[in-house]
């Protein structure tokens, strides 16, 4: 079926503001916080993209990743983003392409610790992921970048959910979410009820809570890492598995 699908006005709650625009804030504290949010969400896809797209070595990719984000902070790269021209994710990738091409051309890569700010990024784990999980055959680099961005976003949301549940004394809620929704081994509600010493109805309720919170966190993080409401909705549709149309 070819649907008439031009009004996907999803109205997600805007509990957080966009970190993309906060990178242009006059307040240095807000600016720094905004960059931290973006770096946290994007550094893994950026690192892996550099490794695979340009065939960079681990050391070179680390330098380029560090260099890209520190330059973006210094030069306020992201303040030039215009939502009308496309998604922030695409804009960031275009900035990255330009940055890497220039760096390689001039062969003046920023060396780690060479007088510029060094971001604390766990390159070792990203490298381990690359070694253990090869990208699916036939996937374009653009799709790979998007896939890794989604993985990063969901990964951060899982960590946030873990922290929030721990802070609220709801470890069992997260434990169930981890077993049922994150572990690829399939378990039934009855098995989980036995494992956690709960009733099946508690398992249902705890899981519903954890999933609801996970959904909220994912959407909050998405809002932070997109430019405006339209882009947020478009990216949410992408995340939710519906073509933007």
């Amino acid at each position: 079926m070819i649907p008439a699908c031009d009004n996907l006005g999803v109205n997600f709650p805007s509990t957080r503001r966009s970190a993309v625009f906060a990178t242009g804030s006059a307040d240095a504290g807000q600016r720094r916080q905004a960059f931290e949010v973006l770096v946290e969400a994007y550094w893994r896809p950026v690192y892996k993209y550099i490794r695979l797209k340009w065939g960079a070595s681990g050391d070179e990719a680390q330098d380029l990743t560090q260099g890209f984000f520190t330059r973006a902070i210094e030069k306020s790269f992201f303040a030039g983003y215009e939502p009308a021209k496309g998604s922030f994710r695409t804009f960031l990738r275009a900035c990255l392409e330009g940055f890497v091409a220039n760096e390689r051309k001039s062969a003046q890569r920023i060396k780690r610790g060479g007088g510029t700010e060094v971001l604390s990024l766990d390159f070792e784990s990203a490298e381990g992921e690359l070694r253990q999980h090869e990208p699916p055959a036939g996937l374009s680099m653009e799709d790979y970048f998007r896939q890794e961005w989604v993985r990063s976003l969901f990964g951060l949301a899982v960590e946030s959910l873990r922290e929030e549940c721990a802070a609220r004394g709801k470890q069992a809620h997260f434990g169930l979410f981890e077993r049922y929704d994150l572990d690829e081994a399939e378990a039934t509600y009855e098995e989980l009820a036995r494992e956690f010493g709960l009733s099946v109805s508690d398992v249902t309720n705890y899981l519903a809570f954890a999933r609801r919170e996970f959904r909220r966190i994912v959407l909050d993080k998405l809002r932070e890492t997109t430019g405006d409401d339209q882009e947020f909705r478009s990216e949410a549709r992408l995340l939710l598995g519906v073509d933007p149309g």
């Binding site: 253990q132 999980h133 896939q147 990964g155 951060l156 690829e184």
Partner: peptide, 10 residues
């Protein structure tokens, strides 16, 4: 950060 496999991601 925990690695999320393709199946988990889906």
């Amino acid at each position: 950060m925990r690695w999320l496999g393709h199946k988990t991601l889906e």
